[in-house]
Amino acid sequence: MVTTFKINEMDVSAGEGETILDVARQHHIHVPTLCHLEGLTPVGACRLCLVEVKGSAALVPACVTRAAEGMEISTDSERLQRYRRMIVEMLFAEGNHICAVCVSNGHCELQALAGDLGMTHSRLGFLYRQKRIDASHYRFAIDHNRCVLCTRCVRVCDEIEGAHTWDVMGRGIQSQVITDLAQPWGSSSTCTNCGKCINACPTGALFKKSKAVGEMEKDTHFLGYIRTMREVK
């Protein structure tokens, strides 16, 4: 069923299964995202894509919401911008993001978000929690200091690779992505060494060992390719 509605006062339409985010992107309306990755099941967790619906007090995540007929959506109000800046501030305060010495410096989605949203500094207290780096894998490494818990690695490993090596342990602020039974990645019996998680990761948390500061560029195009090839079958 096709619905017609408005985004930022522009008339748009959504086809079966298309979310507000899908439609916004078709019309080059920028809605920031972090946990979303085209080709993976959306989870609505980072809350950056929240948008306003006229007549409703509640904000809705564009990545998982289908617009109803006649809805009037706005994606860029002053309030939304403020909330988004705070979300990014929260992520910087939660982890230990030292862009200057990060492999993904210059290619990081979190860093870019901060720049785009004008998040120039954090008014929140940094948590400075000690987090591990696991470099036991022969090709890859994970630095939990830089992980934003978007679970893109978990989903790509489960949904695309089918290995489900990654998952999340613990809860709340203690949450952490793990391989198998929270064992060193290098000793995982399920990892296929495919590297999809590396590319799906928006920050420098997952990286190739051969990369130095600023050298780790991610490429997520494989997702679209795999999806197309699977549809062809």
């Binding site: 989870v43 809350r47 979300i87 992520l91 939660e94 709340g172 602020i173 949450s175």
Partner: peptide, 15 residues
């Protein structure tokens, strides 16, 4: 008791 899934609750409650 925060499950840790969304950022505002996971980090916001700590702040």
């Amino acid at each position: 008791e925060s499950c840790g899934k969304c950022v505002p609750c996971r980090v916001g409650t700590v702040q």
